[in-house]
């Protein structure tokens, strides 16, 4: 009786709003085909085994990372340190060496997440024979690829932000010091950057899924690119640059030029861009990402940068990541729209 009384006003309110009332809901609920596709893709992602495995890996990572951070956060802070004001950010960056920190994990596993969610985006549709059936419906062809991208991006963003906030929440409970507004904004920026970084790998693997008919080939190419930038590119950079290393007695100008070119070449690695951008955002004391001359350092006071200055410092890195993401997307878009779709072949 009581429940009925309680429910009555709610039903009455619901009836006043046409969108909410149960009778009208199904009738009025005609979504644009694009959002129908996004819905379906998101559902597919969330229900798939692959996604659960990826989430399990990421969750374990978070647990491990926040555990080490909490164990070591006390040691990381020395009294009178400039960092003290940004204690909360240490949750994401501190580690004792046994397990990497959250940031390092994100830089390492993020690409895997992106590749894992995109490598069979288009070629699986083709090999299942659903591609030509879907494209014969009255939708624009780019809806399919856009929907796949938007859906995967939404799922990734959700996941990354949930993880980040969970770590922050766990830290809040454990250390009992709330983050300042600036710290909170820095964490948000870092999470957003992680989403962009994962989106880059997602787009790269979608590109491979359009280019290669076999899902296995496209997954392997994605992982190959990832391995190349993580392992081989830095190695190659060292080998190539070794003969040009100036001696300790060389002129400052040539040493500067050498360091500068090494820095520029390392900027081609998306993971390097991500690492520089995140470490600058999460460690306000980082004042520069490239080499500096003595004149530039002279007179500088060691102290944390304000958020705006940190962001300005890594603006090129952020832009670079965004540009790489957009280039991959534009390429996949072009390839997909130009392609002739016939049957399963």
């Amino acid at each position: 009786m009581l429940i009925k009384q309680l429910r009555e006003p709610i039903t009455r309110i619901a009836q006043c709003m046409p969108g909410l009332s149960p009778q009208n809901k199904t009738e009025r609920f005609t979504r644009h085909p694009f959002w129908v596709m996004v819905d379906k893709e998101m559902m597919d992602h969330i229900r798939s085994w692959r996604f659960m495995i990826l989430v399990a890996i990421v969750v374990l990572t978070c647990l491990g990372a926040s555990y080490t951070a909490l164990l070591n956060i006390a040691k990381a802070v020395k009294p009178g340190d400039a960092d003290e004001a940004f204690l909360f950010l240490n949750l994401f960056t501190v580690s004792d060496g046994t397990l990497p920190s959250f940031v390092v994990f994100m830089g390492f596993l993020g690409p895997l997440l992106g590749i894992g969610m995109g490598f069979d985006a288009i070629n699986s549709e083709q090999s299942r024979g659903t591609l030509s059936r879907i494209l014969s419906q009255p939708i624009h062809r780019d809806y399919l690829i856009n929907a796949k991208f938007v859906a995967a991006l939404m799922v990734i963003a959700l996941l990354v932000f949930v993880m980040g906030y969970l770590v922050a929440g766990a830290g809040l409970i454990a250390i009992g010091i709330p983050p300042t507004f600036e710290e909170f904004m820095r964490i948000n920026l870092f999470l957003m950057l992680s989403v962009v970084y994962i989106a880059f790998w997602l787009n790269l693997s979608v590109l491979f899924s359009i280019r290669f008919r076999q899902a296995a080939t496209s997954a392997l190419s994605g992982i190959a690119v990832w391995l190349f930038f993580n392992l081989f590119y830095p190695l190659m950079l060292n080998i190539v640059l070794k003969p040009f290393t100036p001696s300790a007695y060389a002129s400052p100008k040539s040493i500067y030029l050498f360091e500068r070119s090494r820095y520029l070449l390392s900027q081609l690695m998306p993971n390097e861009l991500f690492n520089e951008a995140t470490s600058t955002l999460l460690m306000p004391t980082v004042r520069s990402v490239g080499p500096l001359t003595m004149q530039q350092v002279e007179g500088a006071l060691p102290g944390p940068l304000p958020l705006g200055q940190s962001a300005l410092l890594v603006w090129p890195q952020i832009t670079g990541l965004l540009a790489a993401t957009l280039i991959c997307f534009a390429l996949s878009y072009y390839l997909f729209v130009r392609r002739e779709i016939r049957g399963r072949s």
Partner: peptide, 27 residues
């Protein structure tokens, strides 16, 4: 299309409903 394919982990009716919704029908 020749040798048509469907989303294997969806039921027959769900596949049809998806097609209809791409054509702008309500659920």
């Amino acid at each position: 299309p020749e040798d048509v394919g469907f989303y294997d982990d969806y039921s027959g009716i769900d596949n049809l409903v998806y097609t209809a919704r791409l054509n702008g029908q309500s659920p």
